[in-house]
Nucleic acid binder design. Structure first.
Lengths: 243, 243
DNA sequence: GGTTTGCGAGAGCAGTGCTCTCTGTTGTGA
DNA sequence: TCACAACAGAGAGCACTGCTCTCGCAAACC
């Protein structure tokens, strides 16, 4: 197996436990670079993330960083994936607990997503703010980005299986919209299409609400947003049929 | 009246029609700078907006730009305000038309906001994406930012006045949330508090949905988003009580 | 043990925001 | 009318950025 392939397999997380000392050092340094970048992200923002500052912090020369990340954008991509994974992790672990009612699971996931966003506002902005200029999010980010909506889908699907989804009158999607809803239908077997559509609506609402809170759009109306957020999460649970 | 004050009054739009030739030239150049900046914004993004590139385009030296905008952030602030105003303008003019039913006004405003966002994605990202690093949006942006929600409030309030708001069962906000809802209540006289709360929810949903579409978050599910957007705008109209 | 591969250092390029100083012009109050 | 103040642009310069290239050295492999 070639060195390059090994490196790819390891970087993508397919393989773990680097074998040679060099690979071990590389893994460690890659992690340290990302950690320093994340630390820098906390104080400044994404667009003022400086490779030179990172290299200074790690006591190396800036050009050496390019052995680990071919460009600033690649480093940002790595941070993006890590952020999606951290957020997905938070949502999943909130959903894994036991709840007497799916509504509470739903509300808990909402709260977990918000808490993570408030604790890591710059990382949140990195993934849900404006896309970084001239940089197309690679396909690698799609799967980790889907973790939060997957958690919501699972709650809904499980609620349906347990008979928590009563009949709610909601318009049946038609035409192309029905097709689009059908592409996600296999992920939540049994859930009626109107409720799947509403789940997408709720999903966009969730992140719109968090973005508004973090980006200061709620100042003057719903800030601080704790009560607003809690009440909204309950209403949205009902909106998608959980009651 | 001092020169500096005059300049402020003019820049903020309180005064129009500059009097002296110098002021006329200044007004024109300020506009040209913003126009060039906007042009540059279209191709690149906010964070790669370069004062030097603008000055090159206008055939002047970069330091001369600082006679008009004390810093890059100030220029961005001016662009932010212009963007809010352009978007507010679009929403307001959509709402001013005559509609047989407030639902259609609501849907039309949704569409106008989305159309503007899709036509000016970088300006949209400037105001609804991640905030620019180390730069706090000044108070001047608050009022223009409120134009879109004001349009929605007006539709709701007018719908109530015309008797289009039937009794819908929705939870009454309590505690601090009720207080917060009450701060916006005078802007939409007569509208029940539960519906005001839902309007805020719909507002956050609208921009969450548009951001998701523009920032590529809907790829793989609801992209292209035309049908999804239309259906959602209808459901949200109903959600806030318009039916 | 020789050869390939990976790694860090250093210099350098083209670009950035911003400041300071200088010269010329425009507007204004005495 | 005329001196003085305010303003405008040019140019040099500072400290910084991402990124490239070359050069030695050390680790890994055959």
């Amino acid at each position: 197996m070639s060195r390059a392939l090994l490196s790819v397999l390891w970087q993508t997380g397919v393989m773990s436990a680097p074998r040679t000392a060099r690979e071990r050092a590389r893994a460690e340094l890659t992690g340290e670079i990302k950690a320093a970048a994340r630390r820098q992200l906390e104080t400044s923002g994404a667009e003022s993330l400086s490779l030179r500052a990172i290299s200074r912090e790690l006591g190396m020369v800036s050009s050496a960083l390019y052995r680990y990340f071919p460009s600033r954008d690649e480093l940002l991509t790595a941070l993006v994936i890590d952020a999606y994974d951290a957020l997905g992790e938070a949502a999943e672990s909130a959903a894994q607990k036991e709840y007497p009612h799916p509504r509470e699971a739903w509300v808990a996931v909402y709260a977990a997503v918000r808490d993570w966003a408030r604790a890591n506002p710059h990382e949140y902005a990195l993934i849900y703010g404006s896309p970084i200029t001239g940089y197309q999010a690679p396909q690698t980010t799609v799967q980790p980005a889907a973790r939060v909506p997957m958690v919501l889908l699972n709650i809904l699907s499980q609620a349906h299986a347990e008979g928590w989804l009563p009949e709610v009158e909601a318009p049946e999607p038609s035409g192309r919209l029905a097709e689009q809803v059908d592409t996600i239908a296999p992920l939540a077997p049994g859930v009626p299409r109107p409720m799947l559509l509403r789940l997408v609506i709720a999903w966009t609402q969730l992140f719109g609400m968090i973005s508004f809170e973090l980006f200061g759009q709620l100042v003057g109306s719903m800030d601080p947003a704790d009560d607003f957020f809690l009440e909204t999460s309950r209403q949205m649970a009902k909106y998608v049929g959980i009651s």
